[in-house]
Amino acid sequence: MEQNSLININNLVKRFPVGKGEFTALNGIDLTFETGEFAGLVGPSGSGKTTLLNIIGSLDTPSDGSVNVIGQDIANLNIKKAAVLRRQHMGFIFQTYNLLPVYTVYENIEFPLLLLKMSGSDRKKAVMDALDWVGLTDKIKSRPAQLSGGECQRVAIARAMVKKPELVLADEPTANLDAANSHNILKMMAKLNKELKTTFIFATHDDKVIQYLKRKISLEDGKIVNDENVINKGE
């Protein structure tokens, strides 16, 4: 295990109470992620990929084992520190975009920077850069309801990337997109991964996403059944 890696997971177990017993969602997971990876947690529903993404994203805690993300031990983080970790170092991309409907594209992207208390001029520059990355500089004043699904997801990517986080976690980011939009989005993320050295971790069972992954970690019944580096379209 690499101690200086971005993420170190050692013998991770996650159990959930079910009735009077327990359900083991993750069992003995050992993983390491380095800076700049473009990796995917792949597997069928119930395999544990979203649970693993939750724990890496400090949204949940392990039952056993250790998870170290960007120098922070997830098991020992309180709610406030977990929020700080997410706020400062992580970006999230959701299946259904989850943009704030009353705000413009610009304001949606600006929001994470407000939480970081960044100055107005720095915010403006960062938001314009992010809009440039995703090719939406002409939609600055549009509201989410005025955008297509693909455009909404590009805004969500810009929102996740605007603070240039070390890590972006994406849960089924193409599930609501058609094939053409899915490829565009994935190409964009692969490009950002390459240019900004941001680590991307996906939870997916979508073949379109899998095509772009540099590393594919297959999960089944809470265990890693395969972990392989692959040559893909993003290269």
Partner: peptide, 12 residues
């Protein structure tokens, strides 16, 4: 909205 704000790292 609140869910996204929590995920992004805004404290409760």
């Amino acid at each position: 909205e609140i869910g996204v704000r929590l995920a992004i790292g805004e404290e409760k």
